[in-house]
């Protein structure tokens, strides 16, 4: 039975020793040991039974591949997307506040120094492109979020 332990540990040596991996290894070992015990009941010697249990189990790389799919890449992509979505809302809010402040300043300067001539509308149009573009980015991000659900 020591051989099963060694074999499984060796196969999983390249993966980090997380709780899930430890559980998975435990489960695989249990399963192999039980299988070997069954073979021994059929009259095989312990060594034969253990070898057959390991061979019959198949390639552990298959499990490892599923496991890596489950943990490494998925988590990071989900987190990245989430961060992006959060950023788009923040960007929109910032652009609205920022443009309102600048427009407010323009109105003040216009009214205070040259109240006879209304010129603040022209730079206001230019500044409005900022929140408008951010609003479109935000809408796109929201659409993506809805589609993901």
């Amino acid at each position: 039975m020591q051989k099963i332990n060694m074999y499984v540990e060796e196969q999983f040596a390249d993966l980090p020793e997380t709780e899930q991996i430890v559980n998975l290894k435990e489960e695989i070992k249990d399963s192999m040991e039980e299988k070997a015990a069954d073979f021994m009941l059929d009259g095989k010697s312990e060594e034969d039974a253990v070898n057959k249990a390991i061979v019959d189990f198949g390639n552990l790389a298959e499990i490892k591949r599923e496991f890596q799919l489950e943990h490494a890449p998925q988590k990071s992509t989900v987190r990245n997307k989430k961060q992006k979505e959060d950023m788009s809302t923040l960007n929109l809010g910032f652009s609205i506040c920022g443009s309102l402040l600048i427009i407010g300043l323009l109105v003040f300067v216009n009214m205070y120094y040259t109240p006879d001539e209304i010129w603040f509308v022209f730079p206001t149009f230019a500044i409005l492109w900022w929140p408008v573009s951010m609003a479109f980015v935000w809408m796109k991000a929201r659409k993506r979020k809805v589609m993901q659900r």
Binding site: L24, K35, E62, I63, R65, F67, L69
Partner: peptide, 17 residues
């Protein structure tokens, strides 16, 4: 039909996910 346990546990991982 004898299934390899390795396949089985890979499927478990997938179904659980």
């Amino acid at each position: 039909f004898l299934i390899k346990e390795a396949t089985l546990y890979a499927v478990f991982q997938r179904l659980e996910r």
